[in-house]
Amino acid sequence: MSTPIIELAGVSRTFEQRRKIVKAVDNVSFSVNEGDVICLVGESGCGKTTTGKMVSGLLRPSSGEVRYRGKDIWKMNKEEFREYRLAVQLIHQDPYASLNPAHTIYRILSAPLIHHKLVQDENHARERVRELMRTVEISPPDDFFDKYPHQLSGGQRQRISVARALTVNPSVIVADEAVSMVDVSIRISLLAMLTKLMRDLGVTFIFITHDLAVAKYFAWEGRIAVMYLGRMVELSRTPELINNPQHPYTNALLSAIPEADPRLTRTKERIQLRSPDVPSLLNLPPGCTFHTRCPLYEEGLCDVHVPQLQELEPGVDVACHVAARRHGISLVGETSNR
């Protein structure tokens, strides 16, 4: 097997908050091969955004390694880091905050081209900017050259953000809730555009979202990783995860989502949780952090031992004692009670 383009090995990240240590990401490992797509899904505070920031090098892990093509990005030499820096780009959530209000669209898109000498002259730059705008389906490009971000709609701004990331021909794009803030009628065309990029340009996508339906649509041929309170609880191929979720948290999420179809949503089976309250990151429960709410909870097991992510079937990795036992696997061993 070839080297994964992005690999996280035992990555954790802590923050200090009110003199207490908050573990935003706890021992997360996964790898993505070139051209693949993975969606990080979870509720607020699950660590998905922090993970995205570590993948894109905006945050340094407290422990563990983030590797680009097999090399730890924080141990790279200048040359290697530069290559990584341009190869992995991030698209932010808020199209209103991610473009500099003082610059025209042309300037926003041409600055990286000129700075990195990806174009020979002004004419070439214009041609390339036009091409990029066509790639993100903004037309006619010339009409937008002299516009300022505030003159564009949310969907158009988000497309410009994508075009800006594409200026440096990245191999990996981390998209953090990239479609969450645009209107529903625009969302699908934006997603379709990103899907096209993935297919046509072979860009590897790490797609972060709170919306499982969007994740399903975007990563049907890839994988979804579900995170809960800083840990990855399930990482499976999308159709398996959607149709046959193994972790009780994944299952609870899927059953709780209201569907835009009255018959479907009114007949859906709902899973009752033991408690509606999410534990605080400042005071995480011992063992499996989901045990306080989990319908499968077993005393003496789930509240004592931290389950590690384990492959239960090919392409189905789950961190749950009960699910593992159903597959004849025990996850109890090296774990601890913090």
């Binding site: 530069r82 990331a165 200026t167």
Partner: peptide, 26 residues
């Protein structure tokens, strides 16, 4: 902390660009 400044960092546009083009005009 603005996202467009982060974007300029990610695009490796250099500190001079960040100060003169991203920060000062604003």
């Amino acid at each position: 902390q603005r996202e467009y400044v982060q974007a300029a960092q990610l695009l490796d546009l250099g500190n001079r660009h960040i100060i003169s083009s991203e920060l000062l005009p604003n």
